[in-house]
Amino acid sequence: MKEKLDSILLLDDNPATNYIHKKFIEKVNCTERVLEFQNGYEALKYIRDHSHRPPDLIFVDINMPIMDAWEFLEEFEKLEEGLRQKSKVFVLTTSLSPRDVEKANQIGFIEDIMMKPLSTDDIEQLMTKFF
């Protein structure tokens, strides 16, 4: 595991979920910064505007009203390759549906689907495996 990531981006329309995940990430102490977004458009704008410093890890909730995970990832895929490849993407959900698993499998750059809320154990394991 790397010493510490530069940033982790949280994208969930429910601020409570983002808050809880931020707390756990801080507890694991695996990143310098936690970026919270409740809207996919804002998250994309941030990534584009900070192309020199893209997030190392992105957690995106599948079900969001304005722009869901699939729409977000469709736009994310359009970003420059260098920018996109820098971030590892995980999708989050409270219940796994076969349709979601199938969709996730179709999108090559998704690392995994995970159940939310994430725990500190989940985050530690993920860090060990991917970084």
Partner: peptide, 8 residues
Amino acid sequence: NLKGQASN
């Protein structure tokens, strides 16, 4: 939905 909210 209830599960998510209850967990939170």
